[in-house]
Design a protein around this nucleic acid. Structure first.
Lengths: 349, 349
DNA sequence: TTGAAAGCGATACCAA
DNA sequence: TTGGTATCGCTTTCAA
């Protein structure tokens, strides 16, 4: 049992109720309307009035009541980041963490607050209810899975939204940013082929996420174009452990494999570990290439060659797409930004 | 350059403006007041009226406007989770991730929304402005550092708040939950002593966090009580990499060390790696003990003996402390809940 | 440039 | 149990 203690205290009796605009106005000797203008747009206010209001604001420590404000502006100045992930896996993936930080930074720059919506499968109703009641001006959705049908629901809500990563359904009805994952998978595979690999496996991502499917498709296309076998498919869940397990199995199935295309850096790192355990030298015996290029690649042994996902720009564009919808009163409308993949060569391939 | 495309679309013209309580009321054939009662408290409403209102709500897809509601209730029904961490490190620490999830779960159970406030050092003003303007009903603060003086500021704001981990300052003015880190550090060290270790090092946490300092203090107390040397102090930053580096240095300084007390599991995992590289067998050559017991310990080789931090319960109690303040109109008042440490024996010590 | 006044959409008091 | 109405704090016409 925990120890609970409650020190005796003689704190001030209650919360000093926050000052209102009225108080600011009367202290500044102007009307509430003028005070409001001085604080906001600032247009059409005399310098004297503005100065007086600003002084009053400072002296009183005034902050506008956000509820009152958004009741009339119909803006909440906050944006939801929706993460439809049941478990904590998402937080251990640098891709997601950097996305979160990128989005947060872009929003902060525009004085918008991020509201984190962690949605477990059962929470979906809650989630939609929250979004539906306009607590937020819009939503950014990451790590989207096949079954949540989030895009359908959001499109139906007519709530401005932007997906990071192409949604499974309603891709023509909602805005999203993505990289060309097919091209990325293909480029990664072609690099190994050029290097001389002939027995190339892949560790694919989850089958219920667009990125996983697309990168696999790119791998397959490259192999077929080169008339190489495309039977070596392992499956991981974007985690390091999953990548390690998958690599072990692949090595068992095909001891002659000489290349691995992993659908994420974390999985590639796991594969490196499995290869080291098996006594294979990277890249001489087996070349390995990852995906994402964030956080992981510099720290592995050897440093990972990978396909770069421009996370910062993706977050930036997602916020831009969202704001366009929020500001254009016409409501949600589809738009997409697709980034080309970029190979980053280090030492693993 | 990214590819931008904007498919032609013929979407519905604009957002159907959300239905208001008035519309619900008139559709149900009752007054707005009755409709409000039926939807909320539900007390003092006839069964007929209630049924009519509920039907109207369903047909119209009505959701209360949160801004209007909180303008009068003076509640926002949302709570901030404040994370004063400059970098993404915090997200790679399972301790933090589980705390986040625990808090989110407890809040969701009470229909409160979590608002994530990631505060970089420069953002401190922004942060306080946000909290000061009563966007949220209260705040939970984790991963608190010496320099941010957050506790002082929050106490001054008179905003209900609860810290997870004892705050540096104002510990007597704000509520917090914590584990007894001194006792934990001591217990961990005593375990190694009982095991027969005589040259025991520690990898301490950051010097600007209470948990880091306290665990170090416990380690020192145990060694002194046993008349053993307490000179082997390494420093890490709660990361695996930091733990590995610290362990390497310690091994160099004291090749005869036979025990390591790490202030977090992640750092212990790093130490395990360093020891393996150095050819030391754990626990026979060197016993290792971690701290936290979440995520990491089962996955290391060998599995980590550690000190358990009851994260779930801590999150639960933090939310409870916060809600007590929110519901008792008397405003913030200090309270603490301290959990006793619990050793979890596995194979590393 | 300024101020008076009309909402925004809910809750809650008070009579009925 | 119900309905009328004041109120929450702010923005935004509309006249002056």
């Amino acid at each position: 049992m925990p120890r609970v203690s409650r020190p005796s205290s003689d704190l001030p009796p209650g919360q000093a109720s926050a000052p209102t605009l009225d108080e600011v106005a009367s202290r500044a000797g102007v009307s509430r309307a003028t005070a409001s203008r001085a604080i906001n747009g600032g247009d059409r206010v005399s310098a004297t009035a503005r100065a007086a209001v600003e002084a009053a604001v400072r002296e009183l420590g005034y902050t506008p009541n956000p509820a009152a404000r958004s009741l009339v502006t119909r803006r909440t100045d906050s944006v939801a980041l929706v993460v439809p992930e049941p478990d904590e896996r998402v937080f251990s993936d640098p891709f997601f963490v950097h996305t979160l930080r990128g989005v947060n930074r872009m929003l902060a720059a525009r004085d918008l607050q991020l509201v984190l919506l962690l949605a477990r499968p059962g929470d979906e109703r809650r989630l939609l209810r929250y979004l539906g009641s306009r607590h937020v001006d819009g939503a950014i959705v990451v790590s989207h899975h096949r079954d949540d049908q989030l895009a359908d629901h959001l499109a139906a809500l007519a709530l401005p939204c932007a997906f990071i990563g192409r949604p499974w359904t309603s891709a023509d009805r909602v805005a999203y940013v993505d990289t060309d994952n097919v091209a990325g998978g293909r480029a990664a595979t072609e690099l190994l082929i050029e290097r001389g690999c002939r027995r190339i496996a892949t560790i694919a991502g989850p089958g219920d996420m667009a990125a996983g499917i697309d990168r696999l498709k790119g791998w397959r296309a490259a192999l077929r174009a080169a008339h190489l076998a495309d039977d070596l498919v392992g499956h991981g869940d974007f985690t390091e452990h999953g990548g390690e397990m998958a690599a072990r199995q692949l090595l068992e199935r095909a001891p002659d494999l000489d290349g691995i295309v992993a659908a994420s850096d974390l999985m590639a790192a796991g594969a490196l570990r499995a290869l080291a355990d098996a006594g294979r030298v990277v890249p001489d015996d087996v070349a390995v290439i990852g995906y994402d290029d964030v956080g992981v690649p510099g720290r592995t042994t050897p440093p990972l060659t990978t396909v770069r996902n421009p996370i910062g720009e993706m977050a930036e564009q997602a916020v831009r797409l969202l704001l366009e919808q929020i500001n254009d009163q016409r409501g949600p409308r589809p738009m997409r930004v697709i980034f080309p993949p970029a190979l980053v060569r280090r030492d693993s391939a």
